[in-house]
């Protein structure tokens, strides 16, 4: 069984400048927000250690966050990065370097197996605290303080939007890596007798898989000196003219290698559709089911299969 740890194949997810600009538009971040954020900056900077501690105290209270607190070294690293992130949040520059910092933090969290879903909640509490501090320092202009805080809040939502993008990109990467793995696993060529191979095809036959299948079949024909191949397509979900063409070409190539291919498992519905389409299947040897195909192949190879009269199954 192949190693199913895909982390080695995983490439770091990166967001482009365009992605970042899009998220800024989503939250409505504009130039007027920057001086507002700048006004909040000294208040946050003064309490940045306190806010960092508070953020991790909130996480500590959650069951799902325990993996992080078991890793002392990584926890210190996470705290350091979170502090840096808080400073950057009120820093006024939200470019790729800003996103990279978040990516690094996210990578660290996923290294300890921390569920990213806890973060919107933790983030919400953090923003609440920042809001309370800003309002406490509002002096005689609470309306302005509120506006300032709302500008910082946009950065909070910007962060969440970016985080969702990153998670989605990672998920998609996982899916495509797994698809690759499934493709690799799903085209076995099996020798069942001297000179006889079976090739059960299951799933969807796209161009890539068809090519891979032809390659592995031709290799197996040579390696096993096969004379007959039974190709069973019962499990093929869809047969259209392209798939039929792949089959015809595979059969022709096998013939050049000295092997005869018998195709089995073509359903009545598919046969009708292919005839209407105009696909010429005259060049294919077809037999209704796999059993019939195997019997024909064995006969052609000169095997005679007979059941013994005293078979124990007979009396069972």
């Amino acid at each position: 069984m192949a190693d199913l740890d895909f982390s080695a194949h995983r490439q770091a997810v990166h967001l482009t400048d365009e992605d970042i600009a899009r998220h800024k538009r989503f939250v409505g971040l504009e130039a007027a927000d920057l001086p507002r954020i700048a006004a909040v900056r000294p208040i946050v900077m003064e309490r940045v250690d306190e806010l960092t501690t508070m953020f991790f105290d909130f996480l500590r209270g959650l069951d799902v966050a325990t993996p992080l607190f078991r890793r002392g070294d990584l926890l210190d690293e996470a705290k350091r990065m979170k502090r840096e992130h808080l400073i950057a949040m009120v820093g006024g520059v939200y470019d790729r370097a800003y996103v990279e910092l978040q990516l690094e933090l996210g990578l660290l969290y996923s290294k300890v197996g921390l569920d990213t879903r806890v973060f919107p909640g933790a983030f919400y509490h953090l923003m609440n605290t920042v809001g309370a501090i800003v309002m406490a320092n509002a002096g005689d202009d609470p309306q302005k303080a509120f506006q300032n805080f709302m500008a910082v809040k946009k950065i909070g939502f910007l962060d969440i939007g970016l985080m969702i993008d990153i998670m989605a990109a990672e998920r998609e990467q996982t899916i495509s890596i797994q698809q690759e793995a499934i493709r690799e696993l799903s085209t076995p060529v099996l020798q069942i007798r001297d000179g006889l191979l079976i090739l059960p095809i299951i799933g969807t036959l796209d161009s890539f898989r068809a090519k891979q299948l032809t390659d592995s079949l031709l290799r197996a024909i040579r390696a096993n000196r096969a004379k007959m191949v039974v190709m069973d397509i019962t499990g093929v979900a869809a047969v259209d003219s392209r798939v039929a063409n792949h089959l015809i070409q595979t059969v022709a190539a096998s013939r050049l290698m000295g092997a005869t291919v018998i195709v089995t498992g073509l359903s009545g519905d598919v046969a009708q559709a292919l005839v209407s389409l105009g696909v010429d299947l005259g060049t294919l040897n077809t037999v209704g089911d796999l059993q019939g195909g195997l019997e024909l192949a064995e006969r052609r190879l000169g095997y005679r299969i007979a059941r013994q009269a005293d078979s124990s199954l007979e009396t069972a």
């Binding site: 259209d240 392209r242 519905d269 009708q272 559709a273 292919l274």
Partner: peptide
């Protein structure tokens, strides 16, 4: 078989 026929036609034009 009509289901297979419609699905096959969709497959051809999608391809």
């Amino acid at each position: 078989s009509d289901l297979t026929i419609i699905a096959t036609a969709i497959s051809e034009i999608a391809r």
